[in-house]
Design a protein around this nucleic acid. Structure first.
Lengths: 208, 208
DNA sequence: GCAAAATTTGAACGGTGATTCAAATTTTGC
DNA sequence: GCAAAATTTGAATCACCGTTCAAATTTTGC
């Protein structure tokens, strides 16, 4: 029977210390999950990156599933932040999407930093999976709305926003599969070309 | 010590029967790997789809790793077939790429049929992994050459073919992550829009 | 019809990895 | 300085899964 996680310490100092540790665990987990996938990553893999034994992780998270869930929450929170920033800073659909694409590509190419998970929602247990799916769906619907607005305003030709979002997210999330931080591809150029290609794909009339 | 796989029967009938069984195993494995990923799929999962016990699989493949390898070989062989057909049937870069995109999307959306694996090359053991990586790299280089030819001929604007291939493959391979055979998306329309967007993204001048 | 070959089975083994637990160590707060 | 709280540790448990094996069953070929 799993023991409950200890009650958080009362003093602010202890609480902050605890939150820092949880953030460290999530950063290590994110990197490990991105590198090898959830199932192929062991708790020992994560603990090694922190210089502790795997049993220490249970002091901060009830189980492995909860670590994955927290990683997803963090990723989706970050992506939603990009969305909000795009709305604040830009008016047109093209400009907003360009910002979102550039930001998303940037975090996918940051070297070893916490960055959005792109896989393994199915690895989550049912109740947690449902929450992450809902948050992901909200993000996708927001992207669809931007694209639909672009179609209405004439910035984009009449594409199906649902399919268009899948094209966009697929291209970007796939970066986790092939991008090497020390590889030959310049991250800034990558972002630019991704944005040009993905936006161009919605702007131009179809080729014969 | 692992026993070797029995020597293949002499009679053609037995050989054909064996090959059919191996194809069935690969089809079941492909579906299971696509659905849950290599690590989360058990041999029992695969065997259940065939109505046998998992130990029966060892009669046809030496181990789980070999099944994954054979799945990859099959996928890459199919993709190479698309490539060869594109060369035979079409002259221009755009037409060839359109064919390849449409075919790749088609197999990604076929309902439960064998279709190219898009993940888990890292799950393979080292010697097998190397072979699959080489085959995948050949496929990618072929795509890059088509794109480079399109840039030279003026069909495409000056994109980096390496990045362009990643955009393309990312968008298409991601289909395995979200596409539901009985979902609301029409497969033919999907292929068309993918082709229009991905080709359009290389043909048009960049948006401001 | 029957021996041989092919195929499948149930049981078992060994290793892995998530998780628990009691003890040890470190940090905190007074 | 010290008790309490927080954190980490090493050992152990348990369940699972890949794999092996001998036996049983089915199919083949004559």
């Amino acid at each position: 029977m799993a023991s409950s996680v200890p009650v958080v310490g009362r003093s602010p100092h202890i609480q902050e210390k605890r939150q820092r540790r949880q953030a460290e665990i999530l950063r290590a987990a994110m990197m490990a999950f991105r590198s090898r996938g959830y199932h192929a990553t062991t708790l020992e893999d994560i603990a090694d990156r922190l210089g502790v034994r795997k049993t220490a992780l249970y002091h901060y998270f009830p189980d492995k599933d909860a670590i994955l869930f927290a990683c997803h929450q963090q990723s989706l929170s970050e992506l939603s932040g990009h969305l909000a920033a795009a709305r604040r800073k830009y008016a047109g659909a093209t400009a907003r999407l360009r910002h979102i694409i550039l930001e998303h590509v940037r975090v996918m190419t940051d070297s070893g930093e916490e960055s959005p998970l792109a896989f393994d929602i199915p690895a989550l247990s049912s109740p947690l999976q449902q929450q992450v799916i809902e948050a992901r769906d909200r993000y996708e619907r927001s992207l669809r709305r931007i694209i639909a607005e672009g179609v209405r305003s004439g910035e984009f030709r009449p594409v199906d926003p649902k399919i268009a979002v899948f094209v966009l997210l697929g291209a970007i999330n796939w970066i986790a599969r092939w991008y090497q931080p020390r590889g030959s591809v310049d991250p800034a150029a990558l972002g630019q070309q991704f944005a040009d290609q993905l936006l161009g794909g919605m702007s131009c009339p179809p080729q014969p």
